[in-house]
């Protein structure tokens, strides 16, 4: 039984890979740079004695990422597919060229959908779990993170469709909407709320892997933030700059 982590080289993806390895899962790790993957795979094998296979894949260019993941998985059973993959840009504010838009959509939406479609039959056979990651940025559309938020909203809809189609007894569909996470990009940003540690969220995600289907914010306080944002009248919400 192998757990597959898409976007495993850094941040939440790396934290998930470490937490899954700590819990004894064999892993297939997918990210763009083979150097990061080889290093992480070696570390997890040595520390936790689990089987780890790296797969270098540029999700912004790969025409059929699902086929590549399936090929790398071989005959192994897929126990879980976790897709903490995403990329955003500072200049994602109605000024992007078609190439940049395509890249954002490819990584944030197309690749997760394609990989999910390809792996779905295997996950159903294993009665496994599929785990997606949205964003607090997708709660309401704003003048920033335009394409990113649209892609994440699309991903959220896709996971809702999965939950609608499959009972938890045949496929656990779990969708997490994290707030700010500590990362290479946020480590010194002035954020309205303290960023969560990827390792804390990863521990939570792995602990809840066997626990049915759901859609939740993480940490839970972000559910309140999202509710407030949704409740804001449009005239007021337009003035929100954050």
């Amino acid at each position: 039984m192998t757990a597959i982590v898409i976007g495993a080289s850094s941040g939440l993806g790396r934290a998930l890979a470490e937490e899954l390895a700590r819990n004894g899962h064999a892993l297939l790790l997918v990210a763009s740079d083979v150097r990061d993957l080889v290093a992480l795979a070696a570390d997890l094998r040595l520390r936790h004695g689990v089987a780890v296979e790296p797969l270098a894949l540029d999700l912004s260019r790969e025409p059929d990422p699902g086929a590549r993941v399936l090929e790398a998985l071989g005959e192994d059973e897929a126990s879980a597919l976790l897709m903490p993959v995403g990329v955003s840009r500072e200049d994602d504010a109605f000024g992007l060229g078609v190439g940049a838009i395509g890249q954002l959509l490819a990584i944030n939406l197309h690749a997760p959908l394609a990989i999910a479609h390809a792996l779905l039959p295997r996950l159903l056979v294993a009665r496994g779990a599929i785990v997606g990651f949205g964003s607090i940025a997708a709660v309401r559309g704003r003048g920033r993170n335009v394409v990113y938020a649209a892609a994440k909203r699309g991903l959220e809809t896709f996971f809702e469709s999965l939950r609608h189609r499959h009972a938890p007894s045949e496929l656990r569909v779990q969708f997490w909407k994290p707030g700010f996470l500590r990362s290479n990009l946020t480590f010194a940003m002035k954020l309205p709320m303290a960023p969560a540690e990827p390792s804390d969220l990863a521990a939570d995600v792995v602990r809840r892997l066997p626990k049915g289907s759901f859609d939740r914010y993480a940490p839970a306080k972000w559910a309140l933030v999202a509710r407030v944002l949704r409740a804001l009248p449009w005239s007021l919400f337009r003035r929100v700059k954050a």
Partner: peptide
Amino acid sequence: ADLDLSTFDRSTRSTVRVQRPDRYR
């Protein structure tokens, strides 16, 4: 990021630019 860094002995402090790479690239 501009961060305030200090030596372990606290004898030297400075605000400097810091990069925190998490990938080889």
